[in-house]
Design a protein around this nucleic acid. Structure first.
Lengths: 133, 133
DNA sequence: GTTGACCTTAGATGTAGCTCTAAGGTTTAT
DNA sequence: ATAAACCTTAGAGCTACATCTAAGGTCAAC
């Protein structure tokens, strides 16, 4: 299939597919006579693999590492895959924690603000941000 | 005080302080004879305000909006401040949700992988990413 | 009087992951 | 045969927020 069909079947933008190729993630397995990219069913699977990696939050570098394992399973061990997911999991937990911290602060900031048409002179959001904790 | 002292007292890099000025967030209230930025105590308060906004996750644009309220409270109303925090809160909740979704997927992905020195041939992480849900 | 620590500006660089443009070649349908 | 819809490349642009560089001016201490 040509790039636009792969785009349709994966939902990945053709520009992005070319970008993935440049990044070493997904190379079309053939080129037509006139140099068009021709993707195989295997390429489609790889493209969907990449898409799922993205949904899990993996960076392109991590995705590349996972793809390397996928492409040559016998040369790799479970520990490699697991260490990638573990580090991603840790990263995500940290991000969640940070966001929850912000969420807490913001909720508190909100709590006493009337949110109405009163002058901001006594707005607790502003005064709290001014005063700090 | 000069820029390096403000840097010390706020923990905000001098480069960043200049960047904030260019972005319209924090202008030194004076310049010395030789064109050095001279910051007042009020400027220090503003710098700390910006820092706290950052800790809450506000973008520079949102911070600028909050600063505008702070600088001229009588011209603004609580509703403005509250709408900014509300939209930020919403954004953060969404991000948390997304991350938790990823966290769940990753945890599931991990669950059945031995993580050992076995060949990745039967690694559940890889095969799950291949198969999709 | 010179060394080192400060300050200034404009503008380049970095991150991550796309997304788009320009300029051109190919294919398909009518 | 011509218009629309495809394809190619190199490289620019985008976002958000800094961070750094180059080239130069100023100041205080020894």
């Amino acid at each position: 299939m040509k790039i636009s069909e792969l785009e349709k079947r994966t939902g990945i933008n053709a520009h992005t597919l070319r970008y993935y190729e440049k990044s070493g993630l997904l190379k079309a397995s053939m080129r037509s006579v006139n140099n068009y990219r021709i993707y195989s069913e295997d390429d489609l699977i790889t493209a969907l693999f990449i898409k799922r990696c993205k949904e899990c939050g993996f960076s392109l570098a991590q995705t590349a590492a996972l793809l390397a394992i996928k492409h040559d399973k016998s040369l790799h061990v479970c520990a490699e895959a697991k260490s990638i997911t573990e580090s991603k999991l840790q990263e995500i937990s940290q991000q969640i924690e940070q966001l929850q911290q912000m969420e807490g602060t913001l909720t508190e900031l909100q709590a006493y603000c009337c949110g109405g048409q009163e002058s901001a002179e006594f707005c607790t959001i502003i005064s709290t941000l001014e005063a700090g904790k």
